[in-house]
Design a protein around this nucleic acid. Sequence first.
RNA 1: GGGGAUGUGGUGGAACUGGUAGACACGCUUGGCUUAGAACCAAGUGCCGCAAGGCGUGGGGGUUCGACUCCCUCCAUCCCUACCA
Length: 801
Amino acid sequence: MSSNYKPQLIEKTIQDKWDKEERFLAKIDDREKFYCLSMFPYPSGKLHMGHVRNYTIGDVISRYKRMNDFNVFQPMGWDAFGLPAENAAIENKVNPKDWTNANIDNMKKQLKSLGLSYDWSKELRTCDPKYYKWEQLIFKKFYDAGLVYRKKSIVNWDPVDETVLANEQVIDGKGWRSGAQIEIKEIDQWFIKITEYAEELLDSLDDLDWPENVKLMQKNWIGKSNGAEIKYKIDESDEYLTTFSTRPDTIFGVSFLAISPNHPLAIDLSKKDQNILEFLEKCKDIKAAEADIAKAEKLGIDTEIKVIHPLTGEKLPLWIGNFVLLDYGTGVVMGVPGHDSRDYEFATKYELNIKQVIKTKDDDLPITENGILINSDKYDGMTSEEASNGIIKELVKLDSGAHLIQFRLRDWGISRQRYWGCPIPVVYENGVPKVIEEKDMPIKLPELDKNSPPIPLSQNKEFIGIKDGVIRESDTFDTFMDSSWYHARFTSSNNEDQIFDENTDYWLPVDLYIGGIEHAILHLLYSRFFHKALRDIGLVEGDEPFKKLLTQGMVLKDGAKMSKSKGNTVDPQSYIEKYGADTVRLYMMFTSPPEQSLEWSESSVEGASRFLKKIWNLVNGRKYKKFNKKLEFNKEEMSVRRKSHATLKKVENDYEVRFAFNTAIAAIMELINFIPDEYRNEDASDAQKYCLDEAIMFTLKMLSPISPHICEHLWNDFYLDESSIDKWWPKFDENLLEVEEFELIIQVNGKVRGKINIDKNIEQKEIESSALNVENVKSHIGSSKIKKAIYIKEKLINFVI
RNA sequence: GGGGAUGUGGUGGAACUGGUAGACACGCUUGGCUUAGAACCAAGUGCCGCAAGGCGUGGGGGUUCGACUCCCUCCAUCCCUACCA
């Protein structure tokens, strides 16, 4: 049989077969369970390469686990609320729901064409009231547990469009659509007390089987720090300002205090002082994102108010500084220019006093490390640590401070002033907020007319107005809320009566979670928090949602993250159509290891396709031959068998332990290259045929998680067995891996000068003399004396001369 | 500004525990097949050099018999930075 490899013909047929057999439907059974979850996509319209990479990784592992007799659950759904739907709606005059649903339909088709082994019966979308009904209930439960509160916080305000803008919608300080200079505005918003779980979120990181870099990022983000709260009395007033510092040992170096432009005192002062008012107005021009505030030129204004140093009694100036964040700590910082680089920069600019109070080997200010105290009264000569303890004690005695553990983590603001999100289930009776009852949930997002662009809920009079004195909340949830618990809802997504059920207890936690490294902090931290809070409410079991985490690197193009907003996406669809899903999957897995970022290049897709053609031509029409007699293998045949078994061993390790699919594929390619051509001939010996059949059998099995269609198609004709290819995984024979000989590397002064094959059982003395007999080695040693010979067992020998 | 990563041939990458740098591919060169091309097959391919040999894993320094791997330092690029998801 010599028909050519035509993926378009076989892939659809195989996929239909999977559907018909309900091959990937997950049910509770006696086997060990494996819940494999890939981060669900935002339905932007088309699949991009990042999705293909992410979902292929998850599918390879799911299929491998299934072959190894695990009960695998791999669902897929849609993170369907969000900003892009509103933008598209305005641009194209469609309503966000229709736009989103159309995108989902298209992307689902694309996912199906990739042959991903999902249990589609559990599909969910976050914009569906059947989903967000339960999210509203969770909000209520959190509220009842005291985890929800309201406070003022700042947003980017577009004064022309009169809307709140996301950080990415502010470009160079201007609204992206209106072009107006944005301003910082303070509004009332809903918050969730994630900080109540800060300590646990930090501590339980240790037990997670997650990449160290992600754990470190979360640890730094939570940012537990040990320091002191220090009170400064405002001169000619009974009021105090409280600061937090991790370096109480530098207190004698304080030369000013600075408060945030959003601090109540600053706002108070601006009402009386025109200069301060103008300064605060200027501060409103910087967008609310942390990176922008940190990178902005440091500006300040002297309030003319003095504060009193609690230990020296010295009167210090009080400034307003644009680099002080109200949300972090107390919104007041003590300026120690000698020992903090940001304070140093500020003090230099405004000619404030700079005083050295810590001495180290290095004398250039600012010195930010710990050292020995100077210019610090009775603390002179102490180490930073001793002095900190002493100073805190003294402050406590004076009622001017206390030891304090502080977290960098802030409470989670969940209010968004948009249309396309989950409505927050609250009504206001005469301005007093009240969470609505479960029986009245879901509060549904109001429908829009066809072709109607979204209007924020706050402008939807029908939705807001209930009766006199009673109005509905018009904010929607942050979409991170939607994605913080979907992993749990997947297990019970068809249950309309209960949020979770016995399936939830069976499947949770997620055994392997796979997604982009860009989610290392926010999404993963919010999900961890949700899981713990849901646990404390009694809705889920266990302390953590994701047992193991695999973070895939970004797919880059032209050195930047592929994203719709940058317009540098590559559409996988054309590749799937031209080469087939198996080639695209193979290419994505072969081209780089999952954790590394991948710079997109056109070039080697052809190579992946070529390899599958090679497999096709090798296997198509061939039947696995069973022998009743015992076969004898010569040396060459043994080496082929050894290669087959060694490859199987390596591939297992690459799939299971290292997630290194690229090297697994390379090993399979090596195996195919290794088999002598004549083994394929009609007149090859039985032993040769057996060796080739064994290699093919292993290859189809090993490759099937990556390129499942071609492997299953070939398998059904090749291997005369009732079972489908995903029923079992072959076993390698450890005895076949043993070798008699090894290649010895001979070095002179660490440089390779020769290689010889040597029997494993030979003594070191003999190895040395054989090595010294090699011509090239002799000539490099010449008449020099050998100072020593370093022998690494079964690897190399190095002569030092 | 802070936090986290990455840097190896013309390209993607390999080297898993300090022990042969460049596996496996892409590309390119030459040859075969072909009227021609595509496809396929074979050989070659880190750089310099006729060769012997030397050099070589972002730059500089260090530890070691031996460093892509460990340490110090500098540079470049990417991601996150709480309202993109």
